[in-house]
Design a protein around this nucleic acid. Sequence first.
DNA 1: AATGAATGAGTCTTCATTCAT
DNA 2: AATGAATGAAGACTCATTCAT
Lengths: 190, 190, 190, 190
Amino acid sequence: MAPRTEEQFTEIRNEKIKLIMDTALEAFAQNGYESTSISTIAKAAGISKGLMYNYFPSKVALLQRIIMEGMDVFMQFLEVKDESRIKKEELIQFIDGNLQSLKESTDYYRLYFSLIFQPKVFHLLGNDFMVIFEQLVNKFVLYFTQQGEKNPYGKARFILAIFDGVGIHYISDTEHFPLDEVRDMIVEML
Amino acid sequence: MAPRTEEQFTEIRNEKIKLIMDTALEAFAQNGYESTSISTIAKAAGISKGLMYNYFPSKVALLQRIIMEGMDVFMQFLEVKDESRIKKEELIQFIDGNLQSLKESTDYYRLYFSLIFQPKVFHLLGNDFMVIFEQLVNKFVLYFTQQGEKNPYGKARFILAIFDGVGIHYISDTEHFPLDEVRDMIVEML
Amino acid sequence: MAPRTEEQFTEIRNEKIKLIMDTALEAFAQNGYESTSISTIAKAAGISKGLMYNYFPSKVALLQRIIMEGMDVFMQFLEVKDESRIKKEELIQFIDGNLQSLKESTDYYRLYFSLIFQPKVFHLLGNDFMVIFEQLVNKFVLYFTQQGEKNPYGKARFILAIFDGVGIHYISDTEHFPLDEVRDMIVEML
Amino acid sequence: MAPRTEEQFTEIRNEKIKLIMDTALEAFAQNGYESTSISTIAKAAGISKGLMYNYFPSKVALLQRIIMEGMDVFMQFLEVKDESRIKKEELIQFIDGNLQSLKESTDYYRLYFSLIFQPKVFHLLGNDFMVIFEQLVNKFVLYFTQQGEKNPYGKARFILAIFDGVGIHYISDTEHFPLDEVRDMIVEML
DNA sequence: AATGAATGAGTCTTCATTCAT
DNA sequence: AATGAATGAAGACTCATTCAT
């Protein structure tokens, strides 16, 4: 057989990396980061422990990578055409995009929420959250200012808090939580 | 010399139990339950590891006790005069009571939220949560029904989700989160 | 009430000591020496841990005392009228006495046997065993020499080995082991 | 470099397992199961504590494996050609085989005897002992029935008790116990 | 790229013993 | 004579990480 090309190797690497990350995400979400061992992940992914360390320098690095890539997806819904002017439709799109990914990536959100309350672990993830979060706040402040809201900052923070609240309730009780109806209630508040 | 009286022993016990629980709550809240070792707690409390086990049969039993005693406090705000008829003032009192204890017992809420997403740990806490939560939902459903809301269940779940959202945002960013203004916005929604 | 006399105090002490020893013997026999904690014994005896140390300087001292007092009882059956001449009846009495105490003090024998194979623990008990055992051997050697047995020492050791074998089988399977029939078989061998 | 082949791994594993089991057997026999720590075994075997758990899931599992593999050896001497007819030579072979392995595997027998009297530990070993023991009893009962003995069951139990008695006496005093002469005395009883 | 044997620090937990009262 | 709170060393076990192959 002809030797594999550089691209093929890269592809294999990327596939393995994705496999490991997906497996780890599920395990972390189900049992918690601390309670999930590298062994467990390796076994579930069908690879050896050693290979894990070939792709990720440490357990926490694996976690970081997972969280960060999830953030990137999240970021997509945040983009607006005109930075100085935000339209209601864009916010609605943002909301719907998020709720959609909430439905599709429950594990990710569960992991995310389970980490957010552990300052020590959370800190390891860097301050990317802060930056993103601030951008978000700013956008909503801008929007509510445009709308003539008397307390745009307060309302912005309120809406974002509502978002997370809805997220954790949906995750904790996926079966019963009336996500679609709640979505409409949020939209009404804009 | 005569041995200590039963009361003396009881007093010693109660003091130590309180000391341990307070210390543990803080540590659990700061670093997470899994990441906090018994050693750490003992050191912080200024006692030996062994003494912990004199008062709590296990690490998880300590956690349970902490959570459950916190729940008892929480339950107070849930009481209403007439179970079949809920007044707006009562709900507002409930909200204010909760926000107040949120301000005062930040550590407790942080711990509470950090556990909710760790199914394995959470399960150990029994289903008391479920029961309390259902009672809460029912109360809000009843209230919104009285108010003639068209979707009382949806609104009830929404409000409760908002509660938790506000809680986690306040905890995560105590300094900046405009809790009092947000409180008014919640009350407006009733 | 008049103050207790010296004798009364001594009596109380002796009763407590007996209580502790009986309780400990049962526990040691049932669960093994290592697996039985001082706490367990104290609780079972209805006294405090501290009091235990009032009567016995250590756990192993308690064990030693139990074993030694049991040995004293055992020694009784060993006495013969004329040290230079041993009668068959005396040996039979010895055998019957032992089998009788085997039936009555199963716990003691169980403990005894459980210790005999742990050189480290066994050593703590001193060499009293050795002394007693040698006396026993000598007596049987003498007897079999009188009987004109061609290998008195071998036979003596054999008989004593048989004793222990019967003991452990009886203890291990009290229900089914035909102790009385076996007793006759031993006597026949004399 | 290429990873080791599966055979290489298997070989390493088997060697280590044997090393651990041999070391553990000696330690258990000398100091008793409870009194022997995993640390001690690891140190004696020249490996780390962690490695033990790579091969044995628990301390008790290690014990079980040691006992069970010893049982397999023991079982060999139990086989007879014709299950319905047992010849004296076969019994003698059984006896000699056992006495031989008693001489060679003193540690194993010491461990075995030390466990028999610790109900809690013994229970963990399952009831394989019971099954084997019953088979043994049955064989001797059959033999003595063939011989026209008036009380075959009693005699069978007696002989087996003698076996254990001889075993423990030989183990407890290997130097002086006249095993070969005693062997002849047992054979005479058949 | 891949394996899993090996390590050792760290975890929860137990328990004999001490000691103030 | 009596209590049980307090200690600390030790035990079984886990697991992230390293490394020879």
